[in-house]
Design a protein around this nucleic acid. Structure first.
Lengths: 259, 259
DNA sequence: CGGATGATTGAGAAGTCTCAACCGTGGTGG
DNA sequence: CCACCACGGTTGAGACTTCTCAATCATCCG
């Protein structure tokens, strides 16, 4: 219960980064009844191509979305940290082509689609917030394509570190320059379109350049400016600080003015 | 007017591939008033980081979403064919980090966010359809990451051809095995994370293997099975045929049953 | 202490890039 | 009507990044 509530609270906090929700709307989300599950590392939370009837909120640990190749190789397409509702997409597309795996021992809340859909229908502002959350995901995905497609290994890794730090800070679980990255080098490789050997060498290079240091899975960014420069990191794509988007309950009025 | 209406009709048809909409809802969309614009090849339709107050529906031609690198290189993150509402995301996130460029001479309809937002609020089914459309985009983006991150040049190009053919067929502007791909080899390279030189050689290889042939920008797939095999193409990620998702107007009833 | 997992290292192979030149075609101005 | 130009496609050769395979090291845990 406490776990569930604090996870939902994190989710609401995440939504509030980009959407405004009234106390009532927030409480509606906080009141979601859902099942808690503990998933051990490397176990699938969602299997590719299999229909689901619930979304998954990460309450503890680290999860990742992946694409599975024929040869058994995997490509990680997103990291889901605490407070992320992975697979919110599945509310409108219940059979995802991707899978979701727990990278560490992870606690997730299963939230029934039916409830989420009902909430979205009753509260347009919540529907907008959900839609927006999916848009943020798409924006990050597009950036990853740029990162993988047009940057070399060093810049790719640097970008991943910048993003993870920034997101950790936004989620309130660390600072940009000091946070936990509980993924193995092989998992980082799967996210970057590289091999673990090359990730290892690239990470060594960043360390030797004095840009980052690591103790276990704790990352310290020693020179954020330089790291961001290497990565060509521009946080715009995370879509925070978009400025006020009028919330749906004012829409009717706005329309009259605009049109 | 005719252009506008036929483009909106294509957009509705596209939505109907994955969402069910009542005649009234369809007419609401078809009734959208919007401005038509002709964009010449290589001109930007949306500039990265610049706020917009309208979405863009492609009525003619080919557009692409891109990520701009510091050195001037571009990574294309999506192709937008006729009937695609590119940037529907911008309704909920008006300042995109990406840009949109016309690859050929293109006709677009600018649809004001205010109208779309109002429609989404009045018709929950339309809101769901829009949200779902964004989800399809995210699914395609994720697949592209897998394609670029974990496949070699030959498989990447094959996958792009399979996807483009499938989407052309779904959009009613060609068949899987015979369609127009109005992009230069350099633009294909920008989409695949390769150089144009390497795309050229890779395309030659696919031709010499008897898998595809091209006349100008017309593509003929000579051996779909083999091409799909090379690409590891599985159309699941396009999220058609997801099976019936109950439409929002039945939700109240459904909820009572489900919960 | 033994075993497992993940990090590290080395050496050679493969894929892709870079640079530069050349070709082919369609459009344009004289 | 022809010469020319621009753009996109094609080719070649060498360089460089990244991969592959394999071994070794370090750490954690039972």
């Amino acid at each position: 219960m406490t776990t569930a509530h604090s996870a939902l609270q994190r989710f609401v906090t995440r939504l509030l980064l980009r959407s405004s929700l009234t106390p009532v709307e927030q409480d509606t989300i906080l009141g979601l009844a859902c099942r808690t599950a503990h998933i051990s590392a490397r176990h699938e939370i969602v299997s590719p191509g299999k229909a689901v009837d619930h979304a998954c909120l990460v309450a503890k640990g680290l999860a990742a979305r992946f694409d599975q190749m024929r040869g058994g190789q995997r490509q990680i397409t997103a990291f889901h940290i605490v407070g992320d509702m992975c697979d919110l997409h599945s509310v409108v597309a219940p059979t995802p082509a991707w899978g979701i795996v727990a990278l560490t021992a992870t606690t997730v809340l299963f939230v029934p689609h039916a409830r989420l859909r009902a909430m979205a229908c009753t509260h347009p502002a919540i529907a907008m917030a959900f839609w927006r959350d999916g848009t943020v995901d798409a924006s990050i995905l597009a950036k990853w394509i740029g990162n993988i497609g047009r940057q070399d290994a060093r810049a790719r890794l640097a970008h991943l570190i910048c993003e993870f730090g920034t997101r950790s800070e936004l989620a309130g679980i660390g600072s940009r320059t000091s946070f936990a990255l509980d993924a193995t080098q092989e998992q980082l490789a799967d996210a970057l379109g590289l091999t673990s050997v090359h990730v290892n060498r690239t990470l060594q290079r960043l360390r030797s350049e004095g840009v980052v240091s690591t103790r276990g899975h704790a990352v310290d960014v020693l020179d954020w400016e330089r790291l961001a420069d290497i990565a060509e990191f521009d946080p715009t794509y995370l879509l925070v600080n978009q400025g006020p988007v009028e919330s749906p309950r004012f829409r009717a009025v706005t329309d009259r003015v605009v049109n």
